[in-house]
């Protein structure tokens, strides 16, 4: 009895040295405690409701963001209709708006980023999980995590001061000489360009893709690897036969998650893409993305139609990223289901 009481006191976070010395005549401490707590059903219900309300808050926030964007952009939606999405006019003076250059810029810069980041991040993940000596593994994964922790604006600053001049003086002239005939690398070279945005986005989404790939690959059972090795496979064959096929859905999920991040990335892109609402074939020409037009023009929008058009761009961006993220989560869930995991 006394042992139980002492435990109960620890539970309550109190020390009560007199607990074991209670007189027999009085009701026991446990009984008094239970009497005092007889309305615990009520407090439990209250607690549960409070927790439920918080959980529902998340749902309400997402719903609210959607409704607010849709409501605030109703003027532009009514005025331009569906043509808003494919017209390329952007003229605040004559109040003529179309989102095509921004949608184009967002898509092209993100795809460019994926093109650069996917092979690199998957090979890094393969290296870290399958080939790397154990002591190096921890520090390498820590380094890639650090890469994810650097704020977007610092990437932008670095890109503006280091990457853009580097592109302008070294890399772009080379690309123009060797690949100029494709038409993707031609025209005046400002440094700030779609290419610069793609490169900095690639650096920013590398850690996301690579950490999820790593996580998914580590859920592949060790016995699969051992089976392949026992059949005489080399390490690369083991990876190709038994690791990559099992992880491919999850890797696809990681790639799509990276795409989602790239689509919505604002600051670094705004700083290096050149901010010109025109569609050009050359990757060396300046462009504009949905997120960066919001960052640049939102506080300057003078008329309500202008503001409404900008918010509609925000709505489009919101819907696109929701679809992309939902897809990514479903893919990742389908692989890591059952395994305890933490997604950044």
């Amino acid at each position: 009895m006394s042992g139980k009481l002492a435990e109960r006191d620890v539970v309550n976070g109190r020390e009560s040295p007199s607990a074991s010395g209670l007189a027999v005549a009085r009701p026991s401490a446990a009984r008094r405690y239970l009497n005092a707590q007889s309305d615990s059903a009520f407090s439990d219900g209250f607690f549960k409701t409070l927790m439920l309300a918080s959980a529902l808050t998340i749902f309400v926030i997402v719903l609210f963001i959607f409704l607010e964007l849709a409501w605030q952009s109703r003027m532009a939606i009514a005025h331009f209709g569906i043509s808003f999405l494919y017209r390329s006019a952007w003229n605040p003076v004559s109040e003529d708006f179309g989102a095509r250059p921004f949608i184009y810029g967002t898509l092209v810069s993100s795809l460019l980023a994926l093109l650069i980041a996917v092979p690199l991040s998957v090979s890094t993940a393969v290296f870290i999980t399958e080939m790397c000596p154990i002591p190096l593994r921890r520090s390498l994964s820590f380094l890639t995590e650090l890469l994810a922790a650097i704020p977007s604006v610092v990437y932008g600053l670095w890109a503006l001061v280091v990457l853009v001049p580097l592109l302008r003086t070294e890399i772009n002239p080379f690309l123009m000489r060797t690949l100029g005939w494709t038409g993707f690398f031609e025209g005046p070279d400002y440094g700030v360009s779609m290419l610069a945005a793609g490169v900095i986005l690639a650096i920013m989404i590398l850690p996301i893709i690579s950490s999820i790939t790593r996580e998914v690959m580590s859920t592949v059972p060790q016995s699969q690897r051992e089976a392949a090795l026992a059949l005489g496979a080399t390490r690369w064959e083991m990876i190709r036969i038994s690791v990559l096929p099992n992880a491919r859905l999850g890797i696809a999920g990681g790639i799509i998650l990276g795409l989602g991040r790239a689509l919505g990335e604002t600051m670094a892109v705004t700083m290096v893409i050149g901010n010109r609402p025109e569609i050009a074939r050359s990757l060396l020409a300046p462009g504009y993305t949905m997120a960066s037009v919001l960052a640049n023009e939102f506080t300057e929008a003078t008329t309500s139609l202008y503001l409404s058009a900008l918010i509609e761009i925000g709505l489009v961006l919101f819907l696109v990223t929701i679809v992309v993220n939902a897809l990514a989560r479903l893919l990742i869930w389908s692989v890591t289901r059952g395994a305890s995991s933490r997604m950044a």
Binding site: A55, L56, I58, F59, I61, V62, F64, I65, E68, L69, Q72, L257, G260, R261, L263, G264, E265, T266, A291, L294, A295, F298, I311, G314, L317, F318, T321, I322, V324, N325, A326, A328, R329, M343
Partner: peptide, 22 residues
């Protein structure tokens, strides 16, 4: 709720800014 939390995690920060602005 779990799914919306993951979705909210992926919503571009600038979009959150616009919603709070309005």
């Amino acid at each position: 709720v779990r799914f919306t939390a993951d979705v909210l995690n992926g919503v571009p920060s600038i979009v959150v800014g616009i919603a709070v602005y309005s």
